[in-house]
Simulated assay, not measured.
Amino acid sequence: MRRTKVDRRVKLHRELAEFIDMDLKMRGASVILCEIYGKWKGLREKEKDHEVVWPPMVIIMNTKLDKDDNDKWLGMGNPELLEYFNEYPAIGAHHSYGPQGHHGISVLIFESSTTGYFEAEGLG
């Protein structure tokens, strides 16, 4: 049984490496893969088990703007948030709302790729 788990993990690791390699080639990246792998946070850490949010996301705080006539909070919408962080190529945004309106917490979502991961990390 143990042998099967190890074999499956090795196979998944190889498939991930092939996917990353293909993604980098499609984007025209001329980066040596060993250099890329070494830059992923968590791979250098001593802790072996890391959870990765996928697609890559960055939480943005304090996105409340004002209150409306009904005393509910208004906040940045998707266009404003994406424009504010236009230096980073996020592909979308979501906001947290409750009974009092906008919570002031938003999430920028990046592309589901190695490139998206590094773009999100650059903002985070």
Rank of each mutant, 00 (worst) to 15 (best):
G116C: 06
N62V: 11
S30D: 11
L123R: 05
E80I: 04
V6P: 00
G116L: 01
I60Y: 04
I109M: 10
C34T: 05
G104I: 12
W73K: 00
Q100D: 08
E35L: 15
I20W: 07
V6T: 05
M26D: 13
I32V: 06
N86D: 11
W54T: 12
P56L: 12
N78M: 11
R8L: 09
L65S: 04
I109A: 06
G42E: 05
E121H: 08
S112L: 02
F110Y: 00
G122D: 09
L81T: 06
G122S: 04
G38L: 02
R8M: 11
E83A: 11
V58T: 07
A90W: 01
I36A: 05
N78L: 00
V31W: 07
H50F: 10
D23T: 01
L24K: 03
M22A: 14
D68M: 08
K64M: 11
D68I: 08
I36G: 02
K48M: 06
L33H: 00
G98T: 10
E83S: 14
N78F: 01
I59N: 10
K41A: 01
R3F: 02
H13G: 06
G42N: 03
V6F: 08
K46F: 14
K11I: 10
R3E: 05
D68W: 13
K46Q: 13
K5T: 13
K25V: 04
K5Q: 06
Y117M: 04
S96C: 00
D21Q: 09
D66Q: 14
F110I: 01
L16Y: 02
Y88G: 04
V53F: 10
N62R: 15
V10C: 08
D69F: 11
M1C: 10
L12K: 12
L12N: 15
A120E: 14
G98S: 03
D49F: 07
G124L: 15
K72Y: 05
R2G: 15
G28Q: 13
A17F: 10
Q100E: 12
K64V: 07
H103Y: 12
L43G: 11
H13Y: 15
H13C: 10
G77N: 10
F85D: 00
I60K: 13
I59G: 00
K41R: 11
I91G: 12
L82I: 09
R3H: 10
R2V: 01
V107E: 12
F118Q: 09
G104M: 06
D23L: 01
E35R: 10
D69H: 10
G124E: 13
L24Y: 00
L43R: 06
N70P: 03
M26L: 15
Y117D: 04
D71H: 03
G42K: 11
S112F: 09
L74N: 07
